[in-house]
């Protein structure tokens, strides 16, 4: 499944300062769809290069990270249960506090 992953607000520092990642993710064994839960685990293994605790806490993203699936907060689509489809754009962004 072709997906675009984007990291921002400092999260790109966890993946070699690269903000946009065009990736190809296979369906997990025996699964009919790819959910955000699967994708987070995949990202943790394949994209995050350092300090994974700055990205994940438990099986979800750490506090202060917004997840957007096709420009829409994943809270509105079922968080970890959100089903991902071909060509989806998933954005992970850390909230900023500076000013």
């Amino acid at each position: 499944m072709q997906l675009t992953l984007e990291f921002g607000g400092g999260l790109e520092l966890l993946c070699e300062s690269k903000k946009i990642h065009k990736v190809n993710v296979d369906l997990p064994n025996g699964a009919d769809d790819l959910t955000m839960k699967h994708l987070l685990a995949w990202v943790r293994t394949n994209v995050i290069k350092e300090r994974p605790e700055m990205f994940l806490k438990g099986d979800t993203v750490r506090p202060g990270v917004l997840v957007l699936v096709n420009d829409c907060d994943w809270e509105l689509s079922g968080q970890l249960e959100t089903t991902i489809e071909e060509k989806d754009v998933i954005v992970f962004i850390s909230t900023l506090h500076g000013g």
Binding site: M54, G64, V65, S94
Partner: peptide
């Protein structure tokens, strides 16, 4: 709140 290491 986010971890302090994520607050710059």
């Amino acid at each position: 709140p986010p971890p302090t290491s994520a607050c710059q």
